[in-house]
C-alpha cells in the first residue's frame, strides 16, 4: 500500500512497458558502465573481459559443467542456511527473551560471530575432513550467527503490551507463546533467513576452498589459478543472480505472510 506523500518517493509506473523499462534500467546501466570502464582504459582492458565475451563463455560452460556447479552450490547453501536458521531461531529467541540466557550467551555469541569463516577453514578441515560436512559446517556457522543476531533484536523489540493484553483476556503462558509471540516472531524469522542466505552466498567461495571439485566457488577457484578472468566473471555473476532470485522469492513470501505489517516500504 502506497501512502500519501510517500508515494512520491516510490515511483510506480502505470503501464507494463514503462514498468519493464524501470526494472531493466539498473542492469542496463551496469552493462553500459562495464563497457565504459573497458573503453576508458582506466583499467587495462586485458584485465576486464568484455560482457559479450563473458556471455559466450557462459554459453560454453552451460553446455559443460555449469549446471552441476550451480546445483552443488545451491544445495550447499540451502542445507547450510536451513540448519543454521533452524538452530538460530530457538537460540536467538532464548537470548532475546530470557535475561539470564542473554547475560550468559550474548558475549559468547558476539565473540564467535566476529570470527571470519575463512580463518576457521583449517580447523574445520581438521575436525570435519574435506567432504560435504566440512563445507556445510562453514555455511552453517555463517548462517547461524547471522540469524541469531536478527532473532535477538527482533524478539527484544516485541512490545510488552501485547503480552499484557493477552493476559487480561485470559491467556495462559502456552497460549501467549503460541498465539502472540510466534506471530510476532515470524517477520523476524523471515528476516533471519534473508540475512543468512546473503551471508551464506558470500561465504560459499570460502567454504568451497575445502577441496571442492564441483560448485560455483570451485569454478572460480579453479579459474583463478589459470587467470581465466572470463570464467571468474561467469561464476561471480551466477552467484549474484541466484542469490538475488532467492532473495526476491523470499521477499515475495514475506510480503504474503506478513501482509499485516504497517511499513514504509
Amino acid at each position: 500500500m502506497v501512502h500519501g506523500t510517500f508515494a512520491l518517493l516510490k515511483p510506480q509506473a502505470r503501464n507494463p512497458a514503462a514498468r519493464i523499462a524501470l526494472l531493466a534500467a539498473p542492469w542496463l546501466a551496469l552493462l553500459a558502465l562495464w563497457y565504459a570502464v573497458r573503453a576508458s582504459g582506466l583499467i587495462n582492458p586485458s584485465l576486464v573481459p568484455a560482457p559479450h565475451a563473458v556471455f559466450l563463455k557462459f554459453i560454453a560452460l552451460a553446455q559443460d559443467r555449469l549446471a552441476l556447479d550451480i546445483w552443488m552450490s545451491t544445495r550447499r547453501v540451502f542445507v547450510g542456511v536451513f540448519l543454521g536458521v533452524l538452530a538460530a531461531v530457538p537460540v536467538g529467541f532464548a537470548i532475546g527473551w530470557y535475561r539470564g540466557v542473554h547475560s550468559f550467551l550474548d558475549p559468547l555469541i558476539n565473540f564467535f560471530r566476529a570470527l571470519p569463516p575463512i580463518a576457521l577453514i583449517p580447523l574445520v578441515i581438521v575436525y570435519f575432513g574435506i567432504g560435504e560436512a566440512a563445507k556445510t559446517a562453514i555455511l552453517f556457522y555463517a548462517s547461524f550467527f547471522a540469524g541469531v543476531i536478527v532473532m535477538v533484536e527482533g524478539i527484544g523489540q516485541i512490545s510488552p503490551i501485547y503480552v499484557q493484553v493477552s493476559r487480561t483476556l485470559g491467556a495462559n503462558d502456552a497460549e501467549i507463546f503460541a498465539k502472540v509471540i510466534v506471530p510476532l516472531a515470524v517477520p523476524h524469522i523471515l528476516t533471519a533467513v534473508r540475512v543468512a542466505l546473503g551471508v551464506a552466498w558470500a561465504t560459499l567461495v570460502a567454504s568451497e576452498l575445502i577441496a571442492a571439485q564441483q560448485g560455483l566457488g570451485a569454478l572460480i577457484q579453479n579459474a583463478s589459478s589459470f587467470f581465466q578472468l572470463d570464467i571468474i566473471y561467469v561464476g561471480i555473476i551466477c552467484i549474484g543472480l541466484i542469490a538475488l532470485a532467492m532473495d526476491l522469492a523470499l521477499r515475495a513470501a514475506t510480503r504474503r505472510l506478513v501482509a499485516w505489517q504497517d511499513r514504509i516500504a
Binding site: A171, P183, V186
Partner: peptide
C-alpha cells in the same frame, strides 16, 4: 478484569474479527 489500555494494544497480525474473537478462542473462555 478487562483492561482498556491507553495505547490500545490491538493485535496487528489479526483482522478485526480475529482480534475480537481472540479472548473467546482461549482455553479460559
Amino acid at each position: 478484569r478487562g483492561v482498556i489500555f491507553q495505547e490500545y494494544g490491538v493485535f496487528p497480525w489479526l483482522t478485526v474479527r480475529g482480534n475480537i474473537e481472540f479472548g473467546l478462542r482461549l482455553a479460559a473462555a
